[in-house]
Design a protein around this nucleic acid. Structure first.
Lengths: 332, 332
DNA sequence: CTGTTAGCGCCTTCAA
DNA sequence: TTGAAGGCGCTAACAG
């Protein structure tokens, strides 16, 4: 039945040449006669020979695969990121080895350790871990790039300019005449969340508007709704609201409407990410080109693998303001 | 700087034992004294030794990774599937090697070939390929399971009962009193699309209702809208519509509303998948538990790897009718 | 241009 | 319980 797959030696025997020649033919070396190459190729086809990847890696210390370590993957964001990575990876002839990394640093370390010896480089996304933790965990001998994390002092990182995004949102609300602004941020210990808030607050302050309301959410729909409920209950009023992501903005919109407030007449709302839902619900947002972040990360990593480490470089994918119904129209 | 990672020999030297003992300690064998094991473990910690995966695979013909070959996937479906797979895989101590497979059978073959020797088994999803093509492409010596494909005669497959889903949708529309039904299917050569249509048509026929209108879409929003446009233009009328997925249903709803038709009063609409958008737009749908399909596939594959091939078994994840605003209320 | 051969790092008989 | 040694399949010197 399931016979042992052909090895390079079987091919050599069948083609009547040495294993070296087979290897040369296989790897497209120059120093081999066309006729010999032909014989080898025929033997390979006859035997349905496929080189053993493990042996190959062992021998030349290359695996042809890139490790990708991500947090728990929910939603569109990840499929976009992975899609972008996969595209770039396969363009370069690499495969992707996937692993999710949990918040627990010990487990996170495991995720990275398992990759050693199976990949030529790693892409890590760990917004939930501190810079020190990440630095301590990254295998030193492996080229690595970080995605959507605080810019590293050691490695290249690709991300988004969260501060700029927060500021874009604030300015947009101010531009359409809103003056009493509010912001729903993500977890306090999430890097992106803090940056977006800082950018938002800074832009508001710079414009001379009143200090904005700030609530802490968790990037999920419910938390957006809760934030709004709390404000309204306390009698806090605002006419412009930015949430640190679209899901919270959507939750917020529902809560606002539930309280009879009109969008955008009473409160203009803007989110962050531009998930598909945003378009369908007419939610203004800051668009992030997620797939590009992924391919960018892979391209950079591949460059590192080929040309050696390139040190820290922070690259931000450009953001884009997408104005929709939730912020259209003049002030209340 | 970047010194060579420690090998098993370094550990042996440091611990003052032989490599065999290190290997035994590492793999939790019994025939080794506790004290020796301790010495080895300490040396491992000191040296930050991590076994080289390639060498290990070469030596025991196991890779500890599962190959996943998917079509170009957009959206939530993809991340859910991967999430489910990743969860199950990491539970079993496996990593996932990802690759996308394009519609071109030649390229599809490549995707699978690259996996050979790097994985212990493969999960393939290829609804766009014919059964024969898939069978021809699947490496015979590798355990494989198929997902969301036509049930195979050789391998286990995990999927959904598309016919039942189509029928569920039809019956629901009939139950709420609709009699002139329409269905927007996916690509003619997509297995799922055909099955859903067949289930739909069969249920309608069985109920003695008029033969439904059928349009061919491509699973994307636009095609749902176009289908509706065409029907309306031709003067075809219907009061119940099922699309083969939510995106097309959403496109259809927009087109219906653009023509002044009310949902569900004039036309009740139901989709398939239950993507997050569906809930937000109040679209009734047939819910698919995607993550479970993924973990189920992995569990089955791991079982095959451990216990040998298990032959063809078709397993369907249960479907669930989710009734929302788009089908609530009585007939027109 | 081609063949021989020594590793790559690990596991695993086989002896001791 | 331990060590020595062969072999997994492939690549890359090194000779011819």
């Amino acid at each position: 039945m399931k016979q042992r797959p052909a090895t390079i030696r079987d091919v050599a025997r069948r083609a009547g040449v040495s294993v070296a020649s087979v290897s040369r033919a296989l790897n497209g070396h120059e120093n081999i006669r066309e006729e010999t190459r032909g014989r080898v190729m025929r033997a390979i086809a006859d035997l349905q020979y496929v080189p053993n990847a493990a042996a190959r890696s062992l021998s030349n210390a290359k695996t042809g695969t890139l490790g990708v370590v991500l947090p728990d993957l929910y939603g569109e964001f990840f499929s976009e990121l992975i899609r972008g990575m996969d595209k770039a990876a396969s363009d370069h002839g690499y495969l992707l080895l996937l692993s999710t990394m949990h918040a627990d640093p010990a487990l996170a370390g495991q995720a990275l350790a398992v990759m050693r010896g199976r990949v030529d480089g790693v892409i890590v996304m760990a917004p939930q871990l501190s810079r020190e933790t990440i630095d301590a965990l990254m295998p030193a001998e492996l080229p690595g790039v970080e995605v959507i994390s605080e810019a590293s002092a050691d490695r290249p990182s690709i991300g988004i300019d969260n501060r700029a995004g927060g500021a874009m949102g604030a300015r947009h609300l101010l531009n359409i005449g809103r003056r009493r602004l509010a912001h729903i941020m993500g977890h306090e210990n999430n890097f992106d969340a803090r940056q977006r808030r800082d950018g938002f607050v800074e832009a508001v302050t710079k414009a001379g508007a009143a200090e904005p309301l700030i609530a802490i959410g968790d990037f999920r729909e419910d938390s957006g709704a809760r934030a709004v409920e709390n404000w309204l209950k306390r009698g806090d009023s605002f006419d412009g609201l930015m949430a640190a992501n679209d899901m919270m903005a959507i939750g917020a919109m529902e809560a606002l409407r539930a309280h009879g407030l009109r969008i955008p007449e009473d409160v203009a709302v803007i989110g962050f990410d531009d998930i598909p839902l945003a378009r369908h619900l007419g939610l203004s947002t800051i668009r992030v080109h997620v797939a590009e972040i992924g391919s960018d990360a892979v391209n950079r990593l591949v460059a590192m693998i080929k040309n050696g480490q390139i040190g820290p470089t922070a690259h931000n994918q450009p953001l884009e303001l997408v104005a929709r119904a939730s912020t259209l129209g003049g002030p209340a």
